[in-house]
Design a protein around this nucleic acid. Structure first.
Lengths: 333, 333
DNA sequence: ATGAAAGCGCTAACAA
DNA sequence: TTGTTAGCGCTTTCAT
């Protein structure tokens, strides 16, 4: 025969109190006489009672779980964000349902719908490009949403990012000041406004500030992979570029190895600035100069913001911009 | 005023059928007249009805979510497993609650309990060392558990791994055959039976097979971090070792860089075989020869096994051993 | 093929 | 301080 599950009713009976009282002690409600509380706790312990969170969720309309939509956990960039999210979630007694989307529009929609069906109290979204459709879903549902490392062009939902434009501008200026005239912009998909709008603007402004002309031939759109970076060597070399700002570390390490495997000296013959200061930037030889984004913190702050939203607290500004730094290592002079 | 949530009851009323019928069409039960089904679907569409998974979970005692306990998502090794898990979970209509434990015994227990409270249908556990306490919790609850990349000494729960002993033995033999007499075993915590029992045995057997003596001075226990690897250089050099088998890629790259930064040529003066064939082994120069563990597959197979357990299917063998390969790259001759 | 009705285990008024 | 009693939204017998 099946092991019978212990319910709040069993505890109430054994402790000779009402369910309401048991519920109160379980939930730490102060309106319980210490003696009663003690008695109830004793029974709970004796029966090994574990409150059923699903029943609680149905009754209270709160699940204490949040949905996290991530392109790919096995990507170091997003994994760092995810870790920050989970740590803060745990801190506030939430759990996260983690769902990979591969950045695919349809998967994002599907997964969002199943998360909402599961009554998550909030959603953290990471993705490259917010489609109209998903933004529609966001605004249609009353579940709070926060973007982590992703941008909503018109700030309907909360978001946490760095100032991509300023960071890129600073990096480009540095390369220009090191004497480079031909600076490549090695980027991920330009449909992502982080690349196609903010970073690209920063790149152009940086050039302009140093009196350099913008030239489309120096824009290299690519996947965010090591292999793509390796493969880029040939094209970049042919373009005549002598330095590059790269938006992703895997990509940058690929480019670095592509250059070095072909006898190009870094930083002597070619300088590189990359973007996330991940472990890759430490491992590479030379180590890569990089824009340091506080990835963990972006996740952590996004989750913290979400707790406030879920709590219906007043928010000063739902659009958070975290600081970045330019960390100089060995791939620049 | 609040937007009223649409329930199954609303749909039933509008469609002039019973809740039971609506439930049947939502769940694809064939016992519904096509005309009725059509009518109901129409209303569902019109009202934009979304079934509440929490209510469903309470009524059906199934949540279609599984708990995943992971030491650290931002570790590339575990992230790969997690990705495999999620992909298969999605395939079988499950979601995963992902919880980081840092390999901390107490956190593991806590998180397991909250997962069980949330009525997950199953649990996938990744961790270095199964404490008695957590094994007790596993056997006490009737929720199925599968270990991914972790070993249960007495196979109470399901698990998916590679043959660590054979892999290590093979690697050590290869190093011995390349002429090395002093082969270091660079390992993570030996309390983890994967290291302290299986790999260590493989190491010893490999030495024995090649007529080499075992010497404790060649065992280096370390954290799984790049920094720890870098720091190991000095000790390993002083030990007189001229080759190393390393159980973790980050650690191995650290050691590699430590050696090379100090002028030791790899593989000419020192050979290295590492263990996970992660991207790090590609990025390093020279690229690292490695035991290739199918990380994604370990996760995927673990999740697949869990679906069978949750489904109460008969399992031939709950202890799955996946194949590994020794992939030769540049850090061996 | 369809409906009625009893839960699932808990929270949250409201009363007392 | 404690108890009574409706639900929360759905699934699932059991009838019909």
């Amino acid at each position: 025969m099946e092991k019978q599950t212990i319910t709040i009713y069993d505890v109430a009976r054994e402790a000779a109190v009402s369910m309401a009282t048991v519920s109160r002690v379980v939930n730490g409600n102060p309106n319980v006489k210490p003696a009663t509380r003690k008695k109830v706790l004793e029974v709970i312990d004796r029966l090994d009672y574990r409150p059923n969170a699903v029943a609680r969720g149905l009754a209270s309309k709160k699940t204490t779980t949040v949905g996290v939509i991530i392109p790919d956990v096995s990507n170091a960039f997003f994994a760092s964000l995810a870790r920050g999210i989970d740590d803060v979630a745990t801190m506030y007694k939430y759990n996260i349902i983690l769902a990979n989307s591969d950045g695919d529009d349809q998967k994002e929609i599907n997964v969002l719908n199943t998360l909402l069906a599961k009554q998550v109290d909030g959603v953290i979204f990471m993705g490259h490009h917010l489609t109209e459709e998903i933004r529609g879903e966001f605004s249609r549902s009353k579940t709070p949403v926060v973007l982590a490392g992703s941008i909503d062009p018109d700030n309907q939902v909360g978001s946490v990012n760095i100032d991509y434009k300023a960071a890129t501008k600073e990096a480009v200026i540095k390369l220009a000041e090191n004497g480079h005239q031909n600076i490549a912009f090695v980027t991920g998909p330009l449909v992502d406004p982080i690349n196609g709008v903010y970073r690209l603007e920063g790149y152009k402004e940086g050039l302009k500030e140093k009196g350099l002309a913008y030239n489309e031939g120096f824009i290299f759109e690519s996947e965010y992979t090591y292999k793509a970076g390796l493969a880029l060597y040939e094209r970049i070399k042919n373009s005549g570029a002598t330095a590059a700002f790269v938006v992703d570390d895997e990509l940058a390490v690929g480019l670095l190895n592509g250059l070095q495997d072909n006898g190009v000296k870094v930083p002597d013959d070619f300088e590189i600035i990359t973007s996330n200061s991940s472990l890759f930037t430490e491992i590479a030889r030379p180590r890569l100069t990089s824009v340091s984004q506080p990835l963990y913190d972006i996740g952590a702050v996004a989750m913290r913001l979400l707790t406030k939203l879920m709590n219906k607290e007043e928010i000063e500004d739902k659009t958070v911009v975290l600081p970045y730094r330019l960390t100089e290592k060995g791939s620049t002079k």
